[in-house]
Design a protein around this nucleic acid. Structure first.
Ligand code: ZN
Ligand code: ZN
Ligand code: ZN
Ligand code: ZN
Lengths: 154, 154
DNA sequence: TGGGCGGATGTTATATTATAACGTGATCAT
DNA sequence: ATGATCACGTTATAATATAACATCCGCCCA
C-alpha cells in the first residue's frame, strides 16, 4: 500500500461511487454487497474470498462461502471489483466508469496491484483479435513483477 | 480443434522438440513428464489437471495429484506448457523457443485456445511497465470470446 | 390487503483445485 | 561405495468454488 496516505477516503469514495452507479443502473446495492465492497477496499490490494469471509464473520454473523461469492459475482459483473485470476483474488476497481481497459501490475513482493489503463495495449489487443476474426469478450491481463518501491528496498 | 487435421503430428513434433530442449538445457525429460506433455498435447486445448490425472490413471497405475502437479510445474517452468489462469487449465506451448511473448485467444464455445505472439502487445506492455518503473517478470494475457468458426455456426 | 412473483440471502453439502509433509528410490559426482 | 540431489510415491489436508434447495423480503397488482 505504497501511495495511499488517506485510505479512508479511498474507501468512502469507492462506496459513494458504487452507490451512484447502482442507483443509475437500477441495481440493488444491498447491505451485504456494500459490506463486501467496503472490505475489499479496506484491504486495498488483492484479497482472497475466504479472507473476506473471515472478516465478515466478525462483523455480521456466520457468513458462508456462497454468500460472499454471490456478492463478489455481483460486484465483478458490474465492474466494481475485478478478479485477478492468477492470484485467485479480488480487488476494487479504481475507475468503475472507465472500462473495460483495465489491467494490473502486481508486485510479488508487497502484494500491491496497481490498476492501469493504457490505450496502446487495448488497441493492440483489439487489432490482433480483429486480424484473427476473434470476437473478444473479456480480457485478462495481469503483469506480475516488482514495483518501484520494492525494487528500491532490495 | 478447428485447424488440426494431422494431430498426431502435432503431438509428435511437440514431444520431439521438448526432448531436444531438455537435452540442450540438461533437464531431465522423464517418462512421467513426457507422458504428461503427451497427454496435454493430445487434448489439443486447455486441459484440467484432474482430467490429466484420470487419463494417466488408465495408462500408468494410480497417479496421485502431487505427481501430476509436479510434472505440470516442471513443464510450465520450462516453457513447454502454459497455465491458463482464468480456466485453471493447461495447454501445450506451440513454440517453446520463442518466448515469453505468448498469449491466448480462448473460445468460450469450442474451448480452443489459440496461442499468439504479437510484438505490438508485448512492446506496449513493456512500455507501460517501464513508465511505471515496474519490473515485469510474468505476463498473463488471456482473451476470451468467440473464435471465427464458432461465430459462423451461430 | 394479502397473495404471488422474483431476486437476495441462508444453509447444507459437496465439488474442484492445489499443496504440505515425509518417505523411497533413482542418478550423479566424487 | 557413499553421500548429495532430484524425481516420484503416498497420505493427508488446505484452499477455492459451486450445486441445490429453503427462506425471506420487497414489490406489484388483483
Ligand atoms: Zn477497473
Ligand atoms: Zn511492491
Ligand atoms: Zn508459448
Ligand atoms: Zn470456437
Amino acid at each position: 500500500m505504497h501511495n495511499c496516505t488517506t485510505h479512508d477516503d479511498c474507501v468512502a469514495d469507492a462506496l459513494q461511487q458504487a452507490e451512484e452507479i447502482c442507483a443509475a443502473r437500477e441495481l440493488r446495492f444491498t447491505e451485504l454487497r456494500r459490506k463486501v465492497l467496503e472490505l475489499v477496499w479496506e484491504c486495498h490490494g488483492p484479497v482472497k474470498a475466504y479472507d473476506l469471509l473471515e472478516k465478515l464473520d466478525h462483523r455480521i454473523a456466520a457468513i458462508k462461502p456462497p454468500t460472499v461469492y454471490r456478492a463478489l459475482d455481483f460486484l465483478t459483473e458490474n465492474g466494481l471489483v475485478h478478479k485477478i485470476s492468477s492470484l485467485n483474488a479480488f480487488v476494487g476497481c479504481s475507475h468503475p466508469l472507465r472500462h473495460p481497459e483495465c489491467y494490473f501490475l502486481i508486485c510479488t513482493e508487497c502484494g500491491e496491484a496497481e490498476e492501469c489503463c493504457n490505450s496502446d495495449i487495448v488497441s493492440a489487443v483489439a487489432k490482433t483479435a480483429r486480424e484473427k476474426d476473434f470476437k473478444a469478450e473479456q480480457i485478462t491481463l495481469e503483469i506480475s513483477g516488482r514495483c518501484r518501491e520494492c525494487q528500491k528496498v532490495n
